[in-house]
Design a binder for these strands. Structure first.
Lengths: 236, 236
DNA sequence: AAGATTAGTGTCCTTGTGACACTATATTTG
DNA sequence: CAAATATAGTGTCACAAGGACACTAATCTT
């Protein structure tokens, strides 16, 4: 059993391997604006600066990279976001003071109300308005990562309804249109937007309506099977 | 200097980290079909099976992950492909017998004539027809990775001219249309295809023509700045 | 009750693109 | 050498997607 012998004597440490972590850019929609979840770093390097929720793979408990991502996000928000998608992997010799490091980055979306961040008195986790990231001292290359995530989400807003995962289970079309407008960076035509949504046939119209000083808007929910974890499982 | 102390005493080995490698799905167009570069594995695990060109990061010589990708591809083909793009990162506890492993995957395109694979007598590197991969014994999860790469390239064929990087510097529109048809899996309307190309304004018409038993086709080249390494640098 | 405010629709017009017949320029063949 | 064949490339119609924008609808405010 040549192979068996090989497995026995193999020493993983023989290969010098870069530090490997995961990071998530978790977006939500709250108070008319797009927000990103940031965590104040408790340890070196970049202690005190703000960074993305993430961490190292625990090879004992995690069976896939996505397990790590979900575990880390649950630690910060109390729940596993309904939308998680791999964004990109960045790695080089200089992004971390400690030397060569690699991070596998994810984009995630969640309804603001579903997070425990509000309730928790933990001051080291905070939703930051995505237009005010300039004012925040960010660790490592996290500013770039957030920028790439936002750009990718902008593309999604053009031809999908993925941004709906940043809204509560029931939401109105004007709400959905607004988050799309925030992402794309310009006003959209009501009629065109609604035509697209209708054609996609991914939303389910409920009987309920919600009013805010005018004609009440119909509430919609996402139809089942229109996404969530299917994609992430494919990449596991 | 608290931080300095920290850096001094820091031991990277304190974090148990998965085995980390890169893999590339290198496509080309040759003899009317789409081909993928495969390498016969000389070592365990999966010795003797065919796999994607790739390997481990050399933290001494490589400054970014893309350095590793380019180095590994150059070892096999003699040149650095003109198109390289990050595809996805896969990692879990079971894809490699040795235990937890992570691979950062790339899609690359190159003109067949520009490779040294033909000339070299090295039998362990081979272009395999992408429709005949079923007949090949592939290592690890490389069959899945190739499938994901092909699917991504299919998407690109719908709205870009990225597949042109699998052709020689000068190529004809019927050639480009054919590789798009291979990728998409169905015949395209000549007129529609040419309209799209013209509107994109990414090709430069040369004076030369090439005939193969009918009216000669005009040769085109890609306009500068229409891609190549810009993207990969962004992700470095 | 009238105006303001927000939600949603009707309709025209432009643009992108599939379908397909047409023209153009080469090679092959009788 | 002329006609047939093969490949490249264009003209044009029809239909579908989407922008613009004025309209109707249903609530709240004063």
């Amino acid at each position: 059993m040549e192979e068996q012998d090989y497995l026995k004597t193999y020493d993983q440490r023989a290969y010098a391997t870069p530090l490997l972590s995961v990071d998530s850019v978790l977006f939500t929609y709250h108070e008319q604006s797009l927000k990103v979840l940031l965590v104040q770093r408790a340890k070196h390097p970049d202690k005190g600066k703000w960074g993305l929720p993430g961490g190292f793979i625990d090879m004992q408990t995690d069976k896939t990279i996505e397990d790590t991502v979900m575990r880390k996000l649950e630690e910060k928000t109390g729940v596993i976001p309904p939308y998680i998608e791999q964004l990109a992997t960045r790695g080089n010799a200089v992004r971390d003071k400690r030397g060569w490091s690699v991070t596998v980055c994810y984009t995630a979306l969640i309804a603001h109300q579903n997070c425990r961040v509000n309730i928790s008195t933990v001051s080291e986790v905070e939703w930051v308005d995505s237009d005010r990231l300039d004012e925040v001292d960010l660790a490592f290359d996290h500013r770039e990562i957030i920028h790439i995530a936002r750009e990718r989400l902008r593309q999604k807003a053009l031809y999908s309804i993925v941004p709906a995962y940043a809204l509560p289970e029931k939401f109105t079309l004007p709400e959905l249109q607004h988050i799309h407008e925030l992402l794309i960076g310009k006003k959209l035509q009501k009629k065109s937007f609604r035509r697209r949504i209708e054609q996609a046939d991914l939303l389910h119209e409920t009987d309920e309506k919600r009013a805010l000083g005018g004609r009440p808007a119909t509430l919609y929910t996402m139809k089942k099977s229109s996404g969530s974890y299917t994609f992430i499982r494919n990449l596991g």
